[in-house]
Nucleic acid binder design. Structure first.
Lengths: 379, 379
DNA sequence: GCCGTCTAGTAAGGAGTCCTGACCAAAGGA
DNA sequence: TCCTTTGGTCAGGACTCCTTACTAGACGGC
């Protein structure tokens, strides 16, 4: 780790960054307001604003202050500083959004796949959705953040098929599909990791630095958040719990995904869980439903215990199509509360969590992209 | 997260930090050498050296360059910039060292507890050992780093007793014991975490950003390293695997620590493992030894599989009094290699790993303490 | 033994950044 | 109409870093 070399240029860049960040957070500000917010003196802010305006990053909005005193000039980011692309990829289809540096979603398109899933159709759907939003945004697409419903290789960004886990979307390289339309980097991560980030930003894990998010849907997975970050592991496969040994319905040790096979809750010809069948089997007051819930709670409880032992979370969040289902979540919570070293359990609450998490990161990435580009004065 | 406000003072502080860090790494340097190393110009370095000398942080060593050209003056950290304390606490006794900002150990003392373990005797031993090293160091003890053979509460720094895990040292608050002799902060962590850091710094996990260190000794535990840091979790209890469910000797699911009870390898009146008995039972060519090794390998293998699923390490390191034992380690490795999603397994190799890891951190902490103190010029 | 060479360090000057304090411009209120 | 209030500019100064040129002084070749 080499230390940054001090220089006046670095100082000026820091001032510009302060000004830009203030405007990104507030939308529009006068120079006096920027000075008050950042603590930087008024003349210095004026200098910075002039530099950034000449570089094309800021623009006079045309608006003026009203009230006592001299009229102030509102500045804001220039209209063509660009946008970021956010995409969510699942076997059901593709959702694409664009966001600007203020975090405002500027366009959105959805393309359903219906009865024709698969990697090729998904890639086409992604291209189509991007084509729908592209004309609606000004300036370049400076970065993209993608959520995918399969494990993602941390280095290559490609979707990965693990043994004993369903391959929901299939072999796909989102970065390659987007390479033509997006200028900067494309960040791809698993939908569960994005959902966990969303719960931490705005949901039931608000501000919690250490928690585990367990996703129970067609696929099984979890996200481990420690020290305020999702930890992806070496390949990006941290939290792939399908093969984790836990307690099976007859008390024997079984890989988690096999529990669903024993219970007859997997879809034919696949390792994916049949969520409708599971709901039908586990919900209600019948004795068999109660027994199924118990089996699910024991199986999931084993996973939670392992997560607690290894990650020591402050909280466990249950998400996914059946994980957040009240009847089932309650059974899991009740069983887990009996174990030693139990931890509070909460249900996920953010809607479209994978998109929300990816959107937040996209705004961050776009902002740093804007700040780090320091082009020569254009005018 | 508020952004640092740019100022000339900050720039100067950065220059001083560059100069100090260069000297900390190299020991002694002339101003010209500092300039070459840091990329900062010679006049600026001369200014910084004058400032720091007047503040009492640097001193002319009296040494001069030899060779062609004008004689240069070697500067180094002043002798009284202080030292850091490193302590290792285990039921066998206490080891205390002092280190200076160059990372050199300047004094060492060991106090064995022999047949009188327990928290009270340990606290006394710690005080005694500190008393032995204290007169041998110049300047203040500006920070301390402690390794303890029990789980450590991340917030309070106290040793913690978990259900179903042995309490080897016992109820102790190292920071309170050291409060009188150490000026700055006291950082306490579990010995296994320190050992993992040591393996990453100099051992078999050199430079690996994601790995899991499994400690198999009297107690059981592991350290999870992701993104180049040991992750401690909310309470600091990440990696406390004694209660993790795994495969027992008869194929049933059992908490890891119970496996040793079933095998008759625990000490009387305690949940601690009888390492001598374990060695006697598991080593050698007999059929029963082979069977015991198999049982151990299956039990540990379940833990490794859980760690792989949740943390996705690039490597697994086996440490501890019997975990690094070749015969047993090989059995574990062979069993684990058969599982899906297997990962390379290595044996720990750093001697006194908990002390080595704590020492490295102590040097870092001491260095930042020196850099952040910016006292008014003393002369 | 002398002189050129080479290197550490200093001096002078300048460019750049930020700040303080004074000042100016213009709108609203009394 | 005049005063107050506020955004913005101007002038001057403090400070930091850099480049360039220079000095001090020891080594090595002849």
């Amino acid at each position: 780790m080499s230390l940054a070399k001090p220089s006046l240029e670095m100082l000026r860049a820091l001032t510009d960054e302060n000004v830009l960040r203030a405007l990104m957070e507030e939308g529009r500000l006068t120079r006096a307001e920027i000075a008050a917010r950042t603590g930087i003196s008024k003349p210095t802010v004026s200098d910075s604003v002039r530099r950034l305006s000449e570089a094309g990053l800021l623009a006079d909005t045309g608006e003026r202050t009203t009230g006592r005193g001299r009229v102030g000039t509102y500045y804001s980011l220039a209209a063509d500083t660009g946008a970021a692309l956010v995409a969510s990829i699942s076997p059901e289809g593709v959702v694409v959004e664009t966001v600007d540096a203020f975090g405002t979603a500027t366009a959105r398109a959805e393309v359903d796949l219906g009865r024709a899933p698969g990697p090729h159709a998904t890639a086409q759907a992604l291209t189509e959705a991007v084509g729908l939003v592209r004309p609606r945004v000004h300036g370049p697409l400076r970065t993209a953040v993608v959520s995918a419903a399969d494990p993602v290789d941390r280095v290559t960004g490609r979707l990965v098929h693990l043994p004993d886990a369903p391959f929901l979307v299939g072999d796909l390289d989102p970065a390659a599909v987007l390479a033509g339309v997006v200028d900067g980097t494309v960040l791809v991560d698993n939908d569960i990791n994005w959902a966990a980030r969303a719960e931490r930003a705005t949901g039931c894990a608000l501000g919690v630095d250490d928690f585990v998010y367990v996703h129970l849907g067609e696929g099984l997975g979890c996200a481990v958040v420690t020290d305020a970050e999702v930890r992806r592991g070496h390949h990006g496969l941290a939290g792939e719990i399908a093969h984790l040994y836990t307690a099976g319905p007859r008390g024997t040790a079984l890989p988690l995904i096999e529990v669903f096979a024993e219970l007859g809750l997997r879809r034919a010809e696949s390792t994916a869980i049949d969520v409708d069948a599971l709901r039908a089997a586990a919900l209600g007051d019948s004795e068999t439903a109660r027994r199924t819930r118990g089996a699910l709670a024991r199986a999931v409880g084993g996973v939670l215990a392992a997560a607690v032992a290894l990650a020591d979370p402050r909280l466990i969040v249950l998400g996914g199509t059946w994980g957040a289902e009240p009847g089932i979540a309650e059974a899991i919570r009740a069983h887990f509360a009996e174990l030693p070293r139990s931890v509070p359990v909460a249900a996920a609450q953010v809607p479209e969590p994978e998109l929300a998490g990816a959107r937040t990161r996209a705004v961050e990435a776009l902002r740093t992209a804007i700040i780090t580009t320091r082009p020569e004065p254009s005018a």
